[in-house]
Design a protein around this nucleic acid. Structure first.
Lengths: 158, 158
DNA sequence: CCCCTTATTGCGAATGGGTCGCAATAGCAT
DNA sequence: ATGCTATTGCGACCCATTCGCAATAAGGGG
């Protein structure tokens, strides 16, 4: 909710430039959609993008937004993360370096350095040959405050 | 994959007994639904349960199945796991001891001993106070075979 | 065994996020 | 300016799941 999105906004010019190289046509809609994702700076649902885009360019239809989210993702300009029960959330490309923890109680999303997960990733790779994808799938659970608020009984009885 | 469900089937009498104590009314529908989940033994979608129940007791409506899946879960007789993109999968209670890896390419689900994740769980708890819930949310990624088949380039490029 | 309360069922409509088909529009290379 | 075709807007559609409601039936009390 804060604003480290400035950093993203700065890079968005970059991304918008790439639009010309990466897609056959650069339409106002597409530009606005990419710009919006960049400005919002990550962790926004398709729905939020739809409405912000609608604010900026009212004629844009939701299906165009959905189509472009996929198109932009397929050329690597944006990406999305699945947040447990919640709908997917989009972010400009280059959001590397962290993974996500989603609290199932309060919905809060926190970022963690991906070094924290590297141990598990290595274990899974070694023992199962499985490449865990924490980039696109958040880790679900209960955040400190919610765990606290619920007393500290076992969370199994959720 | 085939039939360690015998073990579950054995325990299902247990669970079915509990039905009498745990729910206000024991209806044939409810009994059949629980029995079905127990017999199928885990990793079944609501849809699969719906159709197996329909085979066993054709009059049962899908909404009854859905309602009962929730009801049975709320009293702890069954539980479900979210498998990445896929729909949730149900299992009889007492499926402890393992977590799930879901391959996004081929859809295969493998079980892993939950000891493998305990390191990460401890780290997350220590550094963030976050209780990761791998019981109900599978780890998504790419299985050995699929990673292999795709060549061994970086998986980041989706 | 019957009755009564009320949990539960079946039905079909609704929901909600997202996708699709199609005709109209509009990039952009020439 | 022209033509090719990618892209758009619209509205219908999809699909798993949920909901509203009247009808049904579980099971405790008499």
């Amino acid at each position: 909710m804060k604003h480290d999105s400035a950093a993203h906004a700065a890079r968005s010019d970059d991304l918008i430039d790439h639009l010309k190289e990466l897609t056959p046509r650069v339409t106002p809609q597409r530009r606005v959609i990419l710009q919006t994702v960049c400005d919002l700076g990550g962790h926004v649902s398709a729905e939020e993008i739809v409405s912000e885009v609608a604010r900026r360019l009212p004629s844009v239809s939701p299906s165009t937004v959905y189509r472009n989210l996929r198109a932009l993702e397929s050329v690597g300009l944006i990406s999305h993360v699945h947040m447990g029960h919640a709908v997917a959330q989009y972010q400009p490309a280059g959001h590397g370096g962290h993974h996500h923890l989603v609290c199932g109680s309060c919905g809060r999303i926190q970022k963690i350095d991906n070094r924290i997960t590297s141990g598990l990733r290595r274990s899974l790779l070694a023992s199962e040959g499985f490449e865990a994808d924490f980039e696109h799938f958040a880790i679900y659970g209960t955040c400190a405050e919610c765990a606290d608020r619920k007393g500290n009984g076992p969370p199994n009885r959720g």
